[in-house]
Design a protein around this nucleic acid. Structure first.
Length: 201
DNA sequence: TACGGGATCGTCT
DNA sequence: GACGATCCCGTAG
């Protein structure tokens, strides 16, 4: 399948884009090991007006500078000192929009994922949750600010789209501190998928 | 099954 | 010097 083009990532509406990413396939190729799967859960972070975003109110630091670049690159950062979280930078240069990938249905490189996750057999927890899927795909800070049309990390288009009725919109996870923005329904996931990070219905 | 807390460190104040 | 866009394991019921 072809990689998603820059024109996809440079769409203005990050909310719509987060929904469109459901059903696409995310891959990494690290040290010759290919791993990947179908995206089943995302969250949109909507630029400088979004209190849950690292770039809220135009905050620009060495870490967040990646978010301000042109859509079509990765944004990886460390959370709670332990977990790497993988985001897609979207929009035009100067607009710090991003989509957090939170859930993945593994399809490629299962044995490599087992090894990285220290697991023996397939269980949802292997890639359910942003920290878990990053570890399964071998994602760490070295994959920050990578071109998503390169050969280390990329997203492929997929013909079979989910129907709208299979997509649930809900509040984002872990952003209670964002006050009046905390309840915005900017988390999207596939209804009933086992690889979504929280109970779904 | 459900809940609670510890792990662990880069980033910004 | 405090705190997370989290995960995992222990304990209890």
């Amino acid at each position: 399948m072809p990689k998603l083009p820059y024109s996809f990532y440079q769409q203005e509406d990050v909310i719509s884009l987060a929904k469109q990413l459901l059903g696409k396939k995310l891959f990494t190729l690290i040290n010759g090991e290919l791993t990947g799967g179908i995206i089943v859960e995302t969250e949109a972070y909507n630029g400088i007006i979004d209190k849950a975003s690292h770039a809220y109110n135009g905050r620009f630091t060495p870490r967040t500078s990646t978010m301000y670049k042109t859509g079509g690159i990765s944004y990886v950062y460390l959370c709670y000192g332990i977990h790497h979280l993988f985001n897609v930078v979207t929009g035009v240069e100067g607009s710090p929009h991003a989509v957090l990938i939170r859930g993945l249905e593994p399809t490629d490189g299962l044995s490599t994922m087992f090894k990285r996750r220290n697991m023996q057999s397939l269980a949802p927890k292997i890639t359910a949750g942003p920290g878990a899927l990053a570890k399964a795909l071998g994602i760490d800070k070295n994959l920050n600010a990578k071109d998503l049309l390169g050969d280390e990390v990329w997203i492929e288009d997929v013909k079979t789209k989910y129907r709208n009725t299979q997509i649930i919109a809900s509040p984002r996870v872990g952003v209670a501190y964002a006050q009046d923005n905390a309840l915005l329904p900017w988390r999207f996931y596939i209804k009933g998928s086992q690889f979504v990070s929280k109970p779904n219905s």
